[in-house]
């Protein structure tokens, strides 16, 4: 493919047009900036062992051995998928990987 070279004049025109289209705020100062972080996004704090629990150790047990069998079983099946044999997102059983 032939290499294109854009001229300075073309860039000026494009940038000038873009500025008028974007109708920029005059300056950043006009933006009201008041940021109040809670502390973090939900679930990003330090002690998070689940609803109704404390860090004292009442979380539901979730680290038992490495044998598991699960299949993707969320909303993927609700999507139309013309290329999929089933017409929807697929579920496939799978074996333990470890």
């Amino acid at each position: 493919m032939a290499k294109t070279t854009t001229t300075a004049a073309a860039l000026a025109l494009a940038l000038g047009t873009a500025i008028s289209v974007a109708s920029l705020p005059a300056s950043a100062d006009e933006m009201k900036m008041e940021k109040c972080y809670g502390v973090a996004l939900k679930g990003q704090n330090d002690c998070k062992a689940g609803p109704g629990t404390t860090c004292a150790g009442t979380a539901k047990k979730d680290y038992q051995g490495n044998a598991f069998k699960a299949v993707p079983a969320g909303t993927c099946t609700q999507m139309e998928s013309p290329t999929s044999p089933t017409g929807h997102g697929q579920l496939e059983a799978f074996e333990e990987t470890m």
């Binding site: 939900k42 679930g43 990003q44 998070k48 062992a49 689940g50 979380a59 979730d62 680290y63």
Partner: peptide, 16 residues
């Protein structure tokens, strides 16, 4: 303690 560490990290991933 081990269970809490793992659960909290899994839940952090679930949140993100």
């Amino acid at each position: 303690y081990r269970n809490n560490v793992i659960v909290s990290l899994i839940e952090a991933l679930e949140s993100t």
